[in-house]
Simulated assay, not measured.
Amino acid sequence: MQIVDFVATNGHWSWLVAGLILLALELVVPGGFLLWMGISGIAVGLITMVQPMPWALQWLIFGVLSLLTITGWVQWNRRRPARSDRPYLNRRAEHFIGHETVLEQAIEQGFGRVVLGDTVWRVSGPDLPAGQAVRIVGSEGAVLKVEPVF
């Protein structure tokens, strides 16, 4: 009963300690949501230091702050563009769009082959003879779409 009495008389310290525990758990359990719950717990602790209030209202403020901060973080994170020093990683075909090359194998019945770097790529486009200069205009999976260059 002494613990319950202590928490009842010093509720703001309980919120501050709970917030710090949640922040420490964020270091162990990744995901981001414990960070915002910890910050919300600390905020409730600081608010109750200044203005004492009943436990039900404290829990309501904690819940609302947690939901708002987590939702705000998720939405901000989704809108933020992913930056990469290798934007074409796992999208090699898109890297070649705009390049010009020569057909290694004639395009017959819609498909042929070109050599780009150290790789032989399958291409699709209008029927063209081997040796024809082509420009890569798109990709569909691992098949490059080409058009003739005159």
Rank of each mutant, 00 (worst) to 15 (best):
L60K: 15
V50D: 00
D118N: 14
Q105N: 08
I107L: 12
V115E: 10
A43K: 04
E104C: 02
I39C: 15
Q109Y: 00
L27V: 13
P52Q: 09
G98F: 13
R92Y: 03
V29G: 02
V50T: 08
R80N: 11
L68W: 10
R113H: 06
F33H: 10
R80F: 01
V64G: 07
V115Q: 08
G117S: 03
I39K: 06
G117H: 00
P126V: 05
G110R: 05
G31N: 10
S84E: 09
P87W: 07
G32L: 01
W76H: 15
R80S: 07
P81A: 08
I136F: 03
R91G: 05
W59I: 13
R86T: 01
L89W: 05
L25A: 14
G38I: 10
G31H: 04
T119W: 05
R83D: 07
R135H: 02
A56C: 11
L60M: 14
P87T: 03
Q51M: 13
G117A: 02
G138E: 11
I61L: 13
V123F: 05
A106T: 01
A133W: 09
R78D: 06
F96Y: 11
V50W: 11
I107R: 00
A43Y: 05
V137L: 04
L57R: 03
A106W: 09
R79P: 09
V114R: 01
R91I: 09
I107A: 08
V115M: 07
P81R: 03
L65V: 06
W76M: 13
A133I: 03
G125K: 03
V74C: 01
W73S: 04
Q58W: 05
I107W: 03
V74W: 12
M49Q: 09
M37L: 15
R86L: 06
Q51Y: 14
I97R: 04
R78L: 04
Q109V: 00
V50N: 00
P52R: 05
L128H: 11
L67R: 08
V114K: 00
L65R: 02
R91D: 05
T69N: 13
Q132K: 13
W76Q: 13
V115A: 08
Q51I: 09
E108S: 10
T119Q: 03
N77R: 15
R78T: 09
A24Y: 04
L65M: 14
Q51T: 09
S40V: 06
T48N: 12
P129G: 02
M37I: 14
E100S: 06
Q58N: 10
L67G: 14
Q58R: 05
